[in-house]
Design a protein around this nucleic acid. Structure first.
Lengths: 371, 371
DNA sequence: TTCCGGAATGTAACCGGTTTCATTCGGGAG
DNA sequence: CTCCCGAATGAAACCGGTTACATTCCGGAA
């Protein structure tokens, strides 16, 4: 146990020098400044002494209580600037029972989503949303089972005041544990219907409405033989998107032209190629993701179809690759930063005692050249 | 030692919820009584009572001190399980002077780097690196001046035990303030030479060596009229990369064929187009970023040059767009996750009293089809 | 047997704030 | 001139841990 010097203590003091705490106390009562070298942290006691009032009054003055005269507040304020006092967050947290942090729970499955900017953007939103509040976001990554247990323990400890869960899986068992943890929880990025209504706050972008936007784009362009190259069928977003397509297109989207594949561009390529053979008349493709769309573009090019003249293509996600595809990909953007920001807001609300509520955001059509 | 501490809690058990209990006085021996019916957290006092020992002994048992009998430890352990005790991080933090958090400082300029996965990956690395340690990463975003002041105050408060600064700007005034904050600081992603040697730990990927890899790729392919389309001249990475190119290529890289432009693909396109007019004989282009490279590809295609037959192109960064460019872009990858992981490691080292040190990582050539 | 020393545990003083409750003080009502 | 009341402040008890110092209890040496 090579536990080095504590940051606040008399850092350079050897055991020999510290003959009992009386010495330390005597020293402390003399000057707010520590000894040579590492200065001791300034506490409200120092400020109180400097201002000639009690610790309680200093605390009240700092928290702007109306029990304190404006006069006294000024005196305290001056003492604070003179001593260079900075509040110790730990002491405050202990006394108030608040940690002044919000946990951001990420249970990324570590798969190929690796360089997906999704989490980064959401995180940025959360950070922004928390900015003025005094609460700080702490990242809690829980990919494996053991990490998950660790995270839950951390919540049990109340080391965070609320949890924002980024893109939870529907029906995850984690949700049950979270519900039992007894602290505010916000689900961000996915609608989790199920039995958690009224327990969690939720913010998500409406995949159905986003899909409608995509469908409307090709519908108003007069396309009649539309195909959908979706992601895996077991993914909840896939179902929502398909529903949106169907609502708008009706008969124009023949179920025979609805296929599923992996999220990546290789999946998009082979599946689209096969689809083109089976249904040569296709004049529009709604892709389940931008990467699938990219594969579709390649398949179309290989098949000699021009985009968008012969076939329109709409992606999903507004991935970084969409803007630089050729032709640049028309796609549907999810307001990730906004989601994060609102998640933060919901978390703060719940910390202050508000009831959970759900916020639904609109996706946005990003028109480029492919449709 | 930290590991041992973590093992003391309940693995996956949630804190006992004592909601809805009526106030019976007798139960007090086992369950702590909350005021006003709200369930009170279980503290070591409760465990001590349950185990029939003092709070001090419980604390020592939890921390696996060798002052406690194995027998007693077992008793305490049982009491912990029975009561469902979970350590309160705040009390511990106050007593030990540690917050058990590491601040991750991001001073992103909010510009077009917006959907850059860089920060996300680094963050993931940091989170991974901190995972077993019991320390949690807290995000501290400081884009504006006021946010910056806020962040510094937060550091002054010692609400974090160390700071990891992601991709700091060289010569930023923030660095000075950080140096004065008197807590461990790790700079991650950029080499900041200057006067901070021996004060900060640093981890970065060597741009010069990465550039050498790119240059070697085209050199061994027998290219003799190499051009460099770099990013803005005032960017420190630009200088490093150019240096690496020059070291390897010497006369093959005529200074007349070295140009600067913006980081984006539009910049790459126009600049490359102009370059091709002035120097038609160019047979290789080293781009300062993948997006610049993408623009270069477009310019080459417009000029009727084949890639890689006529002109080889090497990018930089291994951005998401690189793999899906046509042809797929050969590029240089920076080990972002690894950087984050090592930054976390360095931070932990310094928290435990180690001296600052610098770790240099190697970039990696990602061979694809463009060169 | 007595004394000494070390091991195991208990006691209480911290850490740095907040908050309850008591106390002081000034002033208007009686 | 008292008395009472509310406003401003101080004293002290927390919050939930850690740890220096005191105490107890034990076996072995003198």
């Amino acid at each position: 146990m090579v536990d080095r010097l504590r940051d606040t203590g008399l850092s350079t003091a050897l055991p020999v020098l510290t003959t009992g705490r009386h010495r330390a106390r005597a020293e402390r009562s003399l000057m707010p400044q520590g000894r040579r070298g590492a200065p001791r942290a300034v506490t409200i006691a120092d400020v109180a002494r400097e201002a000639g009032v009690s610790r309680a009054t200093v605390s009240r003055a700092i928290n702007d209580s109306d029990l304190v005269t404006a006069e006294t507040k000024r005196t305290v304020q001056e003492a604070i600037t003179r001593t260079g006092f900075v509040m110790n967050a730990r002491g405050r947290a202990l006394a108030t029972g608040r940690a002044e942090t919000v946990g951001v729970l990420i249970t990324e499955p570590l798969d190929e989503l690796f360089d997906d900017p999704t989490y980064g953007r959401m995180l940025r939103g959360v950070a922004e949303g928390l900015l003025g509040s005094g609460f700080l976001p702490v990242i809690i990554q829980a990919s494996s089972e053991s990490e998950r247990a660790l995270a839950l323990r951390s919540f049990g400890r109340r080391s965070v005041d609320a949890v924002i869960h980024l893109t939870p899986y529907r029906g995850s068992d984690l949700l049950g544990s979270l519900a039992g943890a007894g602290l505010p929880v916000v689900l961000c990025g996915q609608l989790v219907d199920s039995p958690y209504e009224g327990i969690f706050s939720t913010v998500y972008s409406d995949d159905v409405r986003g899909a409608r936007l995509a469908a409307q784009r090709v519908a108003t362009a007069g396309r009649h033989q539309v195909a959908a190259v979706l992601g895996p069928a077991d993914n909840p977003a896939t179902g929502d998107r398909l529903r949106g397509y169907e609502e708008v297109l009706g008969a124009r989207l023949d179920p025979a032209r609805v296929v599923h594949t992996r999220w990546d561009s290789a999946g998009g390529l082979t599946t689209t190629a096969r689809l083109l053979v089976a249904h040569p008349g296709i004049d529009a493709i709604l892709a389940g993701s931008d990467r699938i769309a990219l594969g579709a573009l390649a398949a179309l090019q290989a098949a000699g179809r021009r985009v968008p003249e012969d076939v329109a293509v709409v992606g999903f996600d507004d991935h970084a690759i969409a803007a630089s595809a050729s032709p640049p990909l028309t796609t549907i953007a999810q307001p990730l930063v906004e989601e994060g920001r609102i998640a933060a807001q919901l978390a703060l609300e719940m910390i202050n005692g508000a009831d959970p509520r759900t916020e639904v955001l609109d996706m946005r059509l990003v028109p480029r050249l492919s449709a």
